[in-house]
């Protein structure tokens, strides 16, 4: 517990500033992609450490593994159709039922592992971050009762988070990858070009949530009650 706090503090108070300053001083402040990639990776480390730090029980580990495997299989099942994926819908359901931490882990691990099947790239940490963030937010908002376990509210959250968080951050990462210096027009053009993809992606999340939310949440809640599993 204490060690984890120290590592997190060191990471955010020392390593992050050093990376940013180092990027400005040594890399001419032009290597946005490399620096932002490092920062994205740093952000995820405390989540993973806090999970390891509390020595999770076998049941928790396995439930997260099952949900992750379902998500990975979901991505694989729809690999033919670009952007039309049940991944975010499943991550949101996992977050809503099992809390923010599980949501984060299911999201980020399914991004990592599915890229083992589909090919790694510099985009892998970004995808891990985006999916993890969506799962975490779903869990936290559900815990605060801001996100109800009803179809309507899940669909609204799913559509918005896919469009704004996943689409917004992934498109930003491609701007950082392509361009040496970032101009307003370039960002605008990228977001416009990404618009149809992001719309299809959000629509698919909404559709999958409409179809899957009720039966899946019912299943997960039943298992949770039956075996007394992690609740928020």
């Amino acid at each position: 517990m204490k060690r984890r706090g120290i590592i997190t503090a060191v990471l955010f108070l020392i390593v992050v500033p050093i990376t940013v300053v180092g990027g400005i001083v040594f890399l001419d402040d032009r290597k946005y992609y490399f620096i932002s990639l490092l920062l994205v990776i740093y952000t995820m480390i405390p989540f993973f450490l806090s999970f390891e730090g509390r020595k999770p029980k076998a049941r928790e580990i396995i439930v997260i593994a099952v949900l992750t495997a379902i998500t990975v299989a979901g991505r694989a099942a729809f690999f033919m159709v670009p952007q039309f994926k049940p991944v975010i819908a499943l991550v949101i359901i996992a977050g809503v039922c099992f809390g923010g931490e599980s949501g984060f882990l299911v999201g980020s691990m399914s991004a990592l592992i599915s890229n083992f099947f589909f090919g790694m790239g510099p985009f892998t940490p970004w995808q891990m971050f985006c999916l993890g963030l969506i799962g975490y937010m779903a869990g936290v908002l559900a815990h605060q009762s801001l996100l109800k376990k009803t179809k309507a509210s899940l669909c609204i959250f799913g559509g918005l988070s896919t469009f704004l968080i996943y689409g917004g951050i992934m498109d930003l990462s491609s701007v950082l990858a392509w361009a040496g210096n970032i101009t307003k027009e370039l960002v605008l053009v990228t977001y416009t070009a990404g618009l149809p993809f992001n719309l299809v992606h959000s629509a698919s999340t909404v559709i999958f949530l409409l179809l899957l939310a009720d039966p899946l949440i019912e299943k997960l809640e039943r298992v949770k009650i039956k075996y007394g599993l992690i609740s928020n």
Binding site: F51, E52, P56, A65, A69, A73, A76, L105, M109, L112
Partner: peptide
């Protein structure tokens, strides 16, 4: 070494995907 539980999850998922199929 650093994340034993995460690598456990990792190993399980790799097994679960074909099993679920």
């Amino acid at each position: 070494r650093i994340f034993p539980s995460l690598s456990m999850i990792f190993a399980m998922v790799l097994r679960f995907v074909p099993k679920f199929k």
